[in-house]
């Protein structure tokens, strides 16, 4: 699947399929970011858009308002997302917020960011941030869309490798133990607050990376698109549908959601909001019949 996505633009050229595949990769990356914390760590964030938006807006503001080089701005955007993740994690986990409380607090943080960003002209206000068109490698704006696509593809490959690493490392093993039983993990020497904060930092860095790519590819981001609940929902749907806590689950989920979403749009004649209702139905069917997700098909222990 990864290989097919990698060669796709070079075979199919640009246009509709490339845009579709780009969105799939963005959602796969965003989904994987959620999967690190939610799938492996069992902490279900409903505000993953906070980190996605932080990456996009931090890098956008740095480029547009402060004239920072696009690549440096991208790196700083990812750093800002990670720092925000660490700060949120430290606050939230220290006070032992778990389960639905954690979900609500993350949702609240994302909404807060959405409203704050829309309130100030410096951050684009109600309109959003528009990156001035200046094609070139130095501005991270390539004339050939296959180049950013391939860069994004490499990052998604990296995020899948990260998933594989989680399954083969002490960090990942401890994260799974926390997900399964926090008290038992603590009794065996696992420090929950520190580990969960590390996981949310990693998760936020990945989400911010997706945000940075989103900005550089579409050259536009607004507060609703960057920090809105739709992005948070997309982040969690992909891994839940594809397979929680599996290296490729978010990728599978992103591909399936996109294909079904497009099909639904065609059948319904682009009725607004219908694709969201359709995602809801898919989610219900998956939870009923395939609780382990697409990655669970054919697995003995599914």
């Amino acid at each position: 699947m990864l290989a097919a996505l990698g060669v796709l633009p070079w075979l199919a050229g640009s246009g509709f399929w490339l845009t579709s595949a780009t969105l799939v990769l963005l959602y796969a990356l965003l989904g994987q970011s959620w999967n690190v914390l939610g799938g492996y760590g069992g902490q279900y964030s409903f505000g993953q858009a906070l980190f996605f938006g932080a990456g996009a807006f931090a890098s956008g503001v740095l480029q547009i308002r402060l004239g920072v080089n696009a690549w440096l701005a991208a790196a700083l955007g990812i750093g800002a997302g990670a720092a925000l993740g660490a700060a949120v994690g430290w606050l939230v986990f220290r006070y032992r917020l778990r389960g639905s409380y954690f979900a609500l607090v993350t949702l609240a943080f994302a909404e807060l960011a959405r409203i704050l960003v829309a309130a100030f002209a410096f951050t684009g206000g109600g309109f959003g941030l528009l990156v001035p068109l200046r094609r070139g490698a130095a501005t991270f704006q390539f004339a050939d869309p296959r180049i950013p696509y391939t860069l994004l593809w490499l990052v998604v490959v990296g995020s899948c490798l990260l998933g594989l690493w989680l399954e083969r490392s002490r960090f990942g093993a401890r994260l799974l133990a926390l997900r399964e039983n926090e008290a038992a993990a603590q009794a065996l020497g696992v420090a929950p607050v520190r580990l969960k904060t590390q996981a949310i930092t990693l998760s936020a860095a990945l989400a911010a990376t997706a945000g940075v790519f989103y900005l550089q590819i579409f050259l536009f981001v607004d507060s609703g698109g960057g920090f809105g609940p739709a992005m948070s929902i997309a982040a969690l749907l992909a891994p839940i549908i594809g397979g929680l806590g599996t290296p490729f689950g978010a990728l599978y989920g992103a591909v399936l959601m996109h294909l079904l979403g497009e099909a639904a749009k065609r059948v319904s004649g682009h009725a607004p909001g219908l694709d969201l209702a359709f995602y809801g139905v898919i989610l219900l069917l998956m939870l009923r019949f395939l609780p382990a997700g697409l990655a669970g098909i054919g697995r003995r222990d599914a």
Partner: peptide, 11 residues
Amino acid sequence: TFQIVQPFGRL
């Protein structure tokens, strides 16, 4: 150890 056993069930 815990009186009420606390395995990591899915591991």
